[in-house]
Amino acid sequence: MLDEAEQQNVDGLIQEGETVIVYVGYQQSFAITVQRNATFQHRYGMLRHNDLINKPYGTKFNCTKGYVYVLRFNPEMWTKTLPHHTQILYTKDISMIVFQLDLRIGSIVAEAGVGSGSLSHSILRAVAPKGMLYAYDVDTCRLDSVRMDFDRHGFSNMTKVQHSDVCVDGFGLEHCVDALFLDLPTPWLAISSAKKAMKNGLPCRFGSFSPCIEQVQQTCSALHKYGFVDIVTMDLCHRLLRVEETVLDKPVSKESSELDERSESELIVTTDKQGMKVQKRKWTYLVPKQRQQPMHTGYLTFATKMK
């Protein structure tokens, strides 16, 4: 009991060296690493790192022109705040990938290419603390950056970051991963090595992300050739919505004083400048948050190796 309460207490406070999310406003968040004596500038003023240490997460910090919240790091907020070295996957695709790959605590996963590490953090959350992530990329600078991110976020002992072109050199693994995910320009060239990397005698899951349908065709053909089953391809599209309110006029007859009974609670009765009766009704409804939103990111292909 004491241990549990103590653990909760420690886990709830901001500590030096941790990565936290500074929430400045909607879709204006920043990931910072807490360091003693450092400061963070934002549009409402300055945030001193010393003020954060040993405060609970979720606290409001007042600044000269407003306030900010400091939130606990999680992969969804990291996806929104991380520095982009590549195009990244967003939560709508990431959530489907983690779900379709059947990831759980202890799963061993291989991912190529790692890119900016957006998907990697969601994978690590799902498999921690007993799982493992083998991360591959062809770009050394990207790998170094991602390795530093893993170190900062406490995942260094669960990740193995490797510089390799898996389409040419393969994964260098044999019979040890539960799931494997590819975000590559030519994923069909890596499927032979992917199959070799998967555990023997157990069903293992495969996933691939490709923007173009021709890539998907070649990938599915290769999956079929190497004996994968349950090959499924899908694409996802999310709409971000917002709640709107409006007031609409209703027609009024001069003779009748009858009100629309159904909407009496939302009805507004006023008079205009000429003294005529006016009826209005309030409506609440959903509209897209922006008229233009992403309609395509890529196709997701999933398959199972049975034995």
Partner: peptide, 21 residues
């Protein structure tokens, strides 16, 4: 609460076969 987001979603499956995609 902060970072409130409301979404809906569209999902579509594809048949991927040679010359029949």
């Amino acid at each position: 609460t902060v970072e409130l987001e409301l979404i809906d979603s569209f999902l579509r499956y594809h048949q991927i076969l040679p010359n029949r995609t």
